[in-house]
Amino acid sequence: MRIRRYIQGHRRGRKANRLERDAMRDPFLAEALEGYERAKEDPTPHINILRRKIRSRNQRRLDVFKYGGLAASLVFILGFGIYFGFHKGGSLPEQKPLNRMMIEESQAADPQESQIEPAAGFEAYIKYVEKEMKRPTDACKDAQGQVTVSFFVDPAGKPYDIRVTRSLCPSNDREAMRLIREGPRWTPTDEEVSYTIEFD
């Protein structure tokens, strides 16, 4: 994940520049980067802890339902709490902040499978291309074949830096770029995406 490397302090080069430019279009990213700017130490261990806790929260809930002891556990815990409350003068024990856990974490990266595809799937995207394609009416009107475009996807899912890597005919190329630029969102990714449009 590009943002991880950036917040760990790798802020040089084209990839860092790209992330910074993304932040100009994406207020969510911009605010997050602002937050990390003031971080004195590497925040990735904290992020890993958060992720782990959220994931384990899921499993705990599933297990509890599986074993059906939820109701019983609740009654037990409540009873306990009230018992102690009475004895200690009525106040419930102060809730410990959730992060004060002693965990030895390795800084293992958190792998995430990223699928490069339109947000609504390829099927819907292909339908969009077929529906919205405006075939050239100029000198390119009889051109048949493929145009391959390459582009990056910003955090909002919008393509940018669109370029033609396989050309057919100028008007077809322009139309392909237009379809991508004005089309549905893609799942955000750091990788450059390649997509081929057929003109027949």
Partner: peptide, 17 residues
Amino acid sequence: GELYNRYTPLLYGVCLK
């Protein structure tokens, strides 16, 4: 959980801000 986890880096950053 899967969905929320995708955003933990951004969420944590904004909260830090």
